[in-house]
Design a protein around this nucleic acid. Structure first.
Lengths: 123, 123, 123, 123
DNA sequence: GTGGTCTAGACCACA
DNA sequence: GTGGTCTAGACCACA
């Protein structure tokens, strides 16, 4: 699972937030399933060459948001997500896409033009 | 023109960057045309209730990037953009859309699913 | 007796302390009487699916506090509690209730309001 | 407002959580009202003789939970709480009181006995 | 000035 | 072994 994580320390995006977003995507896409265990904070930190506290911060937020679950003395694992609570990929993408659409409109683009651009960039 | 600008101080996005992006969009969409003059830094700052230094920073960047032009003793105005140099709406949107596509893929979405979501959110 | 114990590994409360508190309550309420024997550490650990060291720690504390008694070669049993030494339910609850009262006061609640809430939650 | 905060570093309760709870109580009880500004992280840290990061952590959580609001470059302030979103003192106290009631019952106490104890401890 | 991020290093509770 | 807490200190973005 460590191979699925990677981090760019010189991006403007804080490392802890990069990690947070990546792990959310792994969970929402099902690459990390309910009850799968995560490597320990120290292992992740070593693999990514960042400070353990930075990793811990990302994971703490995921626990607070109900994505992960810590049981005492055991590895952190993916929390069960009731049907209701589960976030879909579309839901996760909605805020960013909504904003992008607002910008496209301010730029005077039509729905069709944006579709064309999407097709082109999707490759 | 001041009515076209607005700023959300509690958004995560820095205010100077919100301003910068908005003005770029006004220019690219043609709502601000070549030679149109901008209100003074002080006027903008007052209208938006933000720090003049913040406005100044946004405008300075726009000047550096060739969107705006200062002639001595005169108001800042929209710079002429040769056909070649002009940025299109599509070009402007490309970086954000590229990133969004990368995320959609990490989430396991198909091109078609993203198109559907786009259509739905466009309304 | 094992059926009376249960433990929540994802609660914030350490497992050994959950166990400790439960056993104390069983003794104070009389569900465990003087001279009743406890299952072995290993049996308890297996029944609750927790680490034997964790069980051991809880029991050791109870022995230290005089609730339990080990006689050599025999099972751990509930210690005799002289009338004087016996803890009452009210005594046991006092620290937590005192703290809760302090919080209620900081929140501006009156004695009457807290009584109402107590009645409601008691059902 | 700094006089209203105090912290016990040798309590078992983590400092950042002590601070978090205190500020919540100040908000719920109305001692801190909507739009009131908090002292800066550095000021609080100095007044309480703790590390600024510890203060920051408490405040960050309050922001995440919607109690506080940060606007860029300005002081942190109490967020507006829509009628719906506002937490009452009773709501805030409910989880702890519910647990205490469960314990009282396990101890064989009656509602009346608990009321008596409450009255006595309230003084 | 404000807050945000990150690191290194220490110490502790828990299982 | 695991994670949680705290500190000191550095550096940066923002207004």
């Amino acid at each position: 699972m460590l191979e699925l994580l990677n981090v760019n320390p010189s991006s403007g995006e804080p490392i802890y937030r990069q990690l947070h977003e990546q792990i959310v995507r792994l969970i929402v896409s099902g690459q990390l399933a309910e009850d799968d265990v995560l490597p320990s904070v120290r292992q992740i930190a070593e693999a990514l060459a960042v400070n353990p506290m930075t990793v811990s911060r990302a994971i703490q937020q995921l626990v607070d948001q109900g994505y992960l679950e810590r049981r005492r003395g055991q590895a952190t694992r993916v929390a069960p997500r009731g049907e209701a609570g589960a976030t879909s990929a579309a839901e996760l993408l909605t805020p960013k896409l909504t904003e992008l659409i607002a910008e496209a409109r301010q730029l005077g683009m039509t729905h069709h033009e944006l579709e064309i651009l999407l097709k082109k960039l999707w490759q």
